[in-house]
Amino acid sequence: MTSKVYVALRVKATPERAFAVFVDEIGAWWRPSPLFETTPRPGRLSFEFGAGPPGEGGRLIETRAGGKVFEIGKVMAWEPPDRLVFSWRQANFPLDLHTEVEVGFQAVGEETRVSVEHRGFDRVPAGAVRHGFPDPVLMMRLADFWRGQIDAIGQALG
């Protein structure tokens, strides 16, 4: 088994639009957090796709001020407009540690319930990445972090 942090909020948009804004505009709406920093100095996030299908070879990257690119994760499932899965590795993680993020878009009337499930974060070892937090506190902070991100998507959608 693996730990899970799940959060969901409704946004005023169709799943198609919410999915598109999540992927295409992540650099604009993303809110960097000092608690869950992907790189030491925040850059701009984007999804990058190769010549093949987005689900094969797509990746989430962070381009830093000097132009250096850090790969946060690879796209593992690409099912627009319902679902997107990517791996998640912060620069301060051990090299072999990859966690997993699943984003869901479910139509509810005229709105969309955007959910994020982040799996495996409890495997992050003790040390700087955890800011000294034990599991329950770390998981609550991670939930708050993602709730903030969904809130940001909601605001980007107007």
Binding site: S3, K4, Y6, A8, M139
Partner: peptide, 8 residues
């Protein structure tokens, strides 16, 4: 459900 946290 707006938040769910499960341990390992």
């Amino acid at each position: 459900i707006s938040m769910l946290i499960e341990d390992d």
